[in-house]
Design a protein around this nucleic acid. Structure first.
Lengths: 352, 352
DNA sequence: CCCAGTTAGTCAAACGTTAGAACGGAGGTG
DNA sequence: CACCTCCGTTCTAACGTTTGACTAACTGGG
């Protein structure tokens, strides 16, 4: 194939329903109903054949703008995330994207990093009618933003985060994920297990912390508040958490980190302090990513079904009426992926 | 604020231009021109005030579908990437997103991971009129896809990748980036410098390899083909590359890796083989990411202006007519970020 | 043979916006 | 005072689809 010289050939007039209709010798209404598989349509097979032939020959494709205008639906769902750089959201996006495509919808992803104004400016951009609904993944939404959202009359859904009070969200069983991770550490024989948590505002952080607490309790252990450090899900906060824990009175032998991204910082800080993983410190984190396998040492993680989360949320957004509650926990399996960052605690005290 | 009970209040009829016009006591044409800042509009200040007041009071926002239908422009640009999980694209997206927002456009990002059919199905989804142009970042586009693209009459632009033959692309100075990296290694005293490259099909990979070759030559060194390994920009390929290089006859003392992502694999493989970085092997990679600082050891990188690339590409796509060539190299500064993965070569042979 | 009911379509009116053309009045010019 | 020009606005016809209402031709039953 030779590439055309520019970014597109001379703009040839679009082929419209009317063109197809003319060619097939029918009314455009018929063509429209054929295109949309209208079940109410009665049509002779022969006529249908003529129409489909004309459609193919002219390579007709519907004008989404006209369709949206008429039907008042955009065929697009919006997904708002805090940051594209966070690989956790990449998984959610991918899931959402395929679920949307499955339904013939496009996905429009926006982040708060770009616009100065956070969600607000994104909402403005969506204007009226650009999307049929909005998935709000992670991050925090201000009251003002939430008001705007309500004013727009758009169906929305929190993803991986429960809104304050009301119930339109789909989340994962973070509590279970956390329990699996901590249980693994307990099974290895650890007793002093610290938790590098997420930000105070994050709902997932609460649930993971709850899972941590539950797992400890069910092993007959008391939770030591000095072993719980709040972070921000970023590598930097992992570094700080390690400093704090190692400088504490009775350092832990294992770390349950609420997020892979902070685990990267955790590993790097441990290394910097000369603490060997897993010999002197075991580390397990929530979320499995391709990257985890290549950290040093390869990181033991809990694989959360993030794609399924994105997909499920999209499907719910598109199917559940906007005035109904949605409070769903995605039940896809959560698995522990054991790699080399976890081991039993050192037998006795030993100097490096 | 109390949260409303559902995902949206009862769908209240949208406020339209006609509503605003009625309220302001003018024709909707006037309102339209006011909304769009039509420079051809002659209007009494008093009338304009009435209109803007009405706009505000009714909280009017234009219906994008109707507007698109009338103007035949979507106000959206599409960006197609191979994979959301690659943080390099995250940077490009972020740049594109803000440039689009700046122009009042929305950005629609799609990846080939979701749809089974790669770009093809994405193009189908865009249908006619969903986007005004398409940015194609990285990855490879098949001939068939390219034909579809041309048929659609959409302006497109390759980003970070030159198309085969024709000239509509905006790229970075990868050659310079590579030279900076290799020069750094040379300055440290390295003479046997290997290259872990990108995939054969990738244009960036070629340019980085060229930069590598140039830097070596300008230092009076001969390029040793046994020191050049082809990879795939993924962590896994970094692992394999290391195996191959270390098992070779005369292993290098430094590695120039074409991509951060593969560098992660490289570091992990070196570690697994017991090769200490930077004492026994220096590593430098193209692309700086927040993550690089937290690798073990913190990775020396070349910071490429990926955001600027995304932004520039978006602006060009929106401003340059589809039938003109675009061949631009983004000239934002490229900097070497020295961290701890590079050092001078070991003085003499020494057993571990 | 007439009416009811189906079949296979056609007709036309929206959806909300934009943009070119038209238009009534005021002010200036010959 | 007739004519032209500018100003400030209004009118109107699209843009391409969808969808409820309508119809013309058949078919079959009484």
């Amino acid at each position: 194939m030779t590439q055309s010289t520019g970014g597109g050939r001379a703009r040839t007039r679009r082929v419209t329903l009317a063109d197809v209709a003319r060619r097939a010798g029918v009314d455009k209404a018929v063509v429209s109903r054929v295109v949309n598989d209208d079940p109410m349509l009665n049509i002779r097979p022969e006529t249908r054949a003529r129409v489909t032939a004309a459609l193919k020959e002219l390579d007709y494709r519907p004008n989404v703008a006209a369709r949206s205008l008429r039907t008042a639906r955009a065929g697009t769902v919006g997904l708002f995330i805090p940051d594209f750089a966070n690989p956790v959201y990449a998984e959610i996006i991918t899931g959402a994207e395929s679920a949307a495509a499955e339904r013939g919808c496009a996905l429009m992803v926006g982040s708060s990093t770009a616009g100065r104004g956070g969600a607000q400016s994104y909402l403005d951009l969506l204007g009226q009618g650009r999307v049929d609904g909005l998935l709000l993944a992670g991050g925090t939404i201000t009251d003002e933003e939430q008001a705007t959202l309500a004013d727009r009359g758009l169906p929305w859904l929190f993803v991986n985060r429960r809104g304050p009070g009301a119930g339109r969200h789909v989340v994962l069983d973070d509590e279970l994920g956390a329990r699996l991770a901590v249980r693994h550490l307990l099974d290895l024989g650890h007793r002093r297990i610290a938790h590098v948590g997420g930000p105070a505002g994050a709902d997932t952080a609460h649930r993971r912390r709850d899972g941590y607490a539950t797992a400890l309790r069910s092993a007959g252990l008391e939770e030591d508040p000095r072993l719980v450090v709040q972070g921000s899900y970023g590598p930097g906060s992992g570094v700080q958490a390690v400093q704090k824990l190692l400088d504490g009175p009775e350092p832990p032998t294992a770390l349950f980190v609420a997020n892979v991204t902070s685990a990267i910082g955790v590993l790097s800080a441990l290394r910097a302090r000369g603490v060997s993983v897993p010999d002197e410190m075991s580390v397990v984190a929530v979320h499995d990513l391709p990257l985890a396998e290549h950290l040093i040492p390869p990181l033991t993680t809990v694989r959360m079904p993030l794609r399924a989360l994105g997909a499920r949320a999209t499907r719910l957004l598109l199917s559940v009426p906007a005035d109904q509650l949605v409070e769903e926990v995605v039940r896809e399996p959560i698995e522990l992926v054991v790699r080399q960052s976890t081991a039993g605690p050192r037998q006795g005290p030993r100097t490096l």
